[in-house]
């Protein structure tokens, strides 16, 4: 039985020789980490996927310069950071990408808070959902009840991912407004704060 380290350097040797299956192996092992790092920096799944592609294609192109015993993750890490930052550097204040980035920030912020609220209020949230427009409701349900990714929702409904995110931002904002005036939300806050106090 080969140790994990031996297996990795074995795969690296295969990669250097031009074996495509070795790249698939490395991809399966590290793609999630590359994606997550890229996503931390660029905050967009589409851009992060582009970076994952860029990184692994570069690894393939430069395979002959690699050392089979080097730490491949460190290399991937450095490359991913660089590509991700380069992506940010290229974003101009007045471009479409800027709006897309800002929208992602807004959505990620709302989703982080929403996750807690939603878990607590699963029952009463149905009432609140009724306040949404039909499109917002549909997208909210696909995202929260069926657990689909934004891209999958976009594919399913035949609209752009940008539109999906727009609807999500509006839906979450509406829900928060509804809960601000609701007794459920108050009791939720009290429970939550006493929990924090412990």
């Amino acid at each position: 039985m080969m140790s994990e380290k031996d297996q990795l350097s074995d795969m690296m040797a295969k990669l250097i020789q031009g074996d495509g299956s070795a790249l698939t192996y490395l991809y399966n092992k590290y793609a999630n980490r590359v994606f997550n790092l890229a996503f931390q920096i660029v905050k967009d799944s589409g851009w992060s996927q582009d970076i994952v592609q860029e990184v692994f294609i570069k690894i393939w192109d430069k395979r002959e310069e690699l050392d089979k015993d080097s730490n491949i993750w460190v290399l991937l890490y450095v490359m991913t950071k660089r590509y991700a930052i380069n992506k940010l550097k290229a974003i101009n204040r007045r471009s479409y990408s800027f709006d897309r980035l800002y929208q992602n920030i807004e959505l990620l912020d709302l989703e982080a808070q929403d996750l807690l609220i939603y878990k607590e209020l699963e029952g009463s949230i149905q009432l609140a959902i009724e306040k949404l427009t039909p499109k917002q409701k549909e997208i909210f349900n696909l995202s929260r009840v069926e657990g689909l990714s934004h891209q999958k929702i976009a594919d399913r409904l035949g609209i752009s991912i940008h539109t999906v995110k727009n609807h999500m931002v509006e839906a979450l904002k509406t829900l928060r407004k509804v809960f601000k005036n609701s007794p459920y939300f108050l009791s939720y806050l009290i429970v939550f704060q006493s929990f924090l106090g412990d």
């Binding site: 793609a31 999630n32 997550n36 996927q49 990714s149 891209q151």
Partner: peptide, 18 residues
């Protein structure tokens, strides 16, 4: 850096592109 899969990451499709 987390190793967990982000639901927004279409890993298969990206691999196919590569």
């Amino acid at each position: 850096i987390s190793d967990l899969k982000n639901t927004e990451f279409n890993s298969q499709k990206t691999l196919a592109f590569i």
